[in-house]
Design a protein around this nucleic acid. Structure first.
Lengths: 174, 174
DNA sequence: TTAAATTGTTACGTACCATAACAATATGCA
DNA sequence: TGCATATTGTTATGGTACGTAACAATTTAA
């Protein structure tokens, strides 16, 4: 069941041991309460911070499975679009084709995805979830749901919906 | 005045030449309209997409100056907290101290920031904007404002405020 | 005074991703 | 039909960002 695991360490930042505010240096200039000033009004800054936190939580919850955000997205897209090609997947994920190769290599090693030859075009593969991939995805989905709830703890249902809508507008291509 | 520039290329993704939908392969399975399915309902996915777009725009607008999002944040924080230490900056940016070293190295080479020795503590430096750094920051701010407007084109003032508020909630530490 | 902590730094490793070039295959068109 | 062109997956290469670990210099605390 857990063919996963590999060498998936990674835990991103969170270097502060315990909220130590560097009081010792406060005699100097402006150390005591560092102001983020104009930055807090910038979408990009707010996005980065939010994404950092969300991804951290995702890693913490799912790296034991060998699953990263990109790998989960890949699984979900293949599940929703069985037989999809690598190029098509690259476009959907908005990454280069070469990146998909590595992604699928890994997922194949984890026995979650298979490349199946397709007679209609001998250059390309049809990507499918393996049987194990399907059951793993179910399990992973439950984890993701819990992660999602944790990350959205400060939002009610309506707010979350709104946030997704606004993010979609900002993220809309072109 | 423009000691900047260096080797700042970089333009991130946007590999699709012109919206080609891979119709040719449509006979097979589900190629025609790839569905993102469950992913569109996930905060992390929406965040990633939005951030990718916003950062792309930022790079496009400011890489000629040698300025990246991280470098701009650094300049803004130093400007708002003159004399700040590298460690304090690291905590504020939420990155490792070693990362700040590189960041400041670069900014120092660009003549935008200076490390000034401090008698009270011979281990640390007080970071300051140089004269050139201050004028550059003004210029950069104007660029950033334009970038910000472009990125938020689909949001009215109220929506943007709301979005920032929600993002702050999601991004709130712990 | 001595042990522990902090600061900036370097070395190192890794994740991620783009670009460019390629061979095999497919398609379009004269 | 035949040939130029495009597409697919792949590899090689390189860059960027960032963390961890170890260190010397210095400061703080006991």
């Amino acid at each position: 069941m857990s063919a996963a695991k590999k060498k998936g360490k990674r835990a991103r930042r969170r270097s502060a041991p315990g909220k130590k505010i560097a009081i010792a240096a406060s005699r100097e200039a402006a150390q005591r309460a560092v102001s983020e000033g104009e930055l807090s009004g910038l979408i990009g800054y707010a996005l980065r911070r939010a994404q950092l936190r969300v991804f951290d939580d995702f890693y913490a919850a799912l790296s034991v499975e060998g699953i990263t955000p990109a790998r989960f997205s890949t699984l979900a897209i293949i599940d929703g679009n069985p037989g999809i090609s690598q190029t098509s997947l690259a476009q959907t994920l908005d990454i280069a084709r070469s990146g998909v190769v590595m992604l699928i290599d890994t997922l194949e090693q984890l026995d979650l995805v298979s490349r199946e030859p397709i007679e209609a075009d001998k250059r390309s593969y049809a990507l499918h979830l393996t049987r194990g991939g399907k059951t793993a995805l179910q399990r992973i989905r439950r984890q993701v749901a819990i992660h999602e709830a944790r990350v959205c703890a400060r939002l009610d249902e309506k707010e979350k919906k709104w946030l997704l809508k606004m993010l979609a507008r900002v993220g809309a291509a072109r």
